[in-house]
């Protein structure tokens, strides 16, 4: 049995046009951990996530998922153990109906129809979207789309969940429901986000990226007290940690 770990060593990535995406990133995320990945726009969060799933190949350094080094050869194994929830659900839900979409992965894994049916049912049940199974994805609300997108990933029974901005463009209730849902998952979680309140709810550990480098890595509650650090990464203290929400005149 593989350990659900993600480990990077001195990861560098330079885009074809010369932009530096990652500039020496090293960390180790162990089994069952939930880690928030924060940083300003363009800090390298998405670039890093794309390495975990093997969409981008590091210019230098290496990355390991479970027992495997992420290489072209291991891609299938890696992608099966990593479930990636994209920022824009419309890109993730490409099939005609919710059911087809959730079934896409299992069918590619070569499972029998009955087995697929069962797994899809379970996954949709988990995210509370069973009633949507026959609907076409473009008719869903943002919150429903996000839930279904998560189901498409869960159905593959991944060990590690990687999420890019899961709470973006959700209304407050949908956001709350999503956080409650994610809290129930026992997977290793890596969540790239600007939503520091959610990070506090879900992740005991936070990694701060700034210009392609890790500027901080530690307990979430502690890092978020450091205003200088947050300011440098264009972040703001989570609302609940701001002692005085109404500044004196």
């Amino acid at each position: 049995m593989s350990h659900h770990i993600v480990e990077t060593r001195d990861l560098h990535y330079v885009y074809p046009d010369g932009t530096v995406g990652l500039d020496g990133v090293s960390f180790r995320i162990t089994h069952g951990e939930s880690v928030a990945l924060v940083g300003e726009n363009g800090a390298g969060k998405s670039t890093l996530l794309h390495h975990i799933n093997g969409y981008l190949a590091a210019t230098k350094g290496e990355i390991r998922v479970g027992d495997h080094k992420v290489t072209l050869k291991n891609m299938d194994v890696v992608r099966r153990s990593v479930g990636m929830v994209f920022q824009n659900s419309d890109d993730q839900l490409f099939m005609p109906t919710v059911f087809d979409d959730v079934a896409f992965g299992p069918l590619n894994m070569g499972l029998e129809n009955e087995e697929v049916e069962k797994k899809v049912h379970e996954a949709l049940e988990t995210v509370g979207a069973s009633h949507l199974r026959k609907r076409p994805p473009y008719r869903l609300s943002q919150g429903e789309k996000r839930a279904v997108a998560i189901a498409t990933v869960l159905v593959m029974s991944p060990d590690i969940l990687v999420m890019d901005e899961p709470t973006s463009s959700l209304d407050p209730m949908s956001r709350k429901r999503l956080i409650e849902l994610l809290r129930t998952f026992r997977h290793t979680k890596i969540i790239a986000t600007h939503d520091l309140d959610m990070a506090m709810d879900l992740s005991e550990r936070t990694i701060v990226l700034h210009k392609g480098r890790i500027t901080a890595d530690g307990p979430t509650a502690q890092l978020f007290q450091d205003e200088k650090l947050l300011h440098q990464s264009s972040l703001e203290k989570p609302l609940r940690m701001q002692q005085c929400p109404y500044p004196h005149p």
Partner: peptide, 16 residues
């Protein structure tokens, strides 16, 4: 395309 690959897309679309 990335989303498809992450769910095991191998060039064939299978619909039940």
């Amino acid at each position: 395309y990335r989303a498809m690959c992450s769910r095991g897309f191998d060039g064939h679309i299978r619909v039940s």
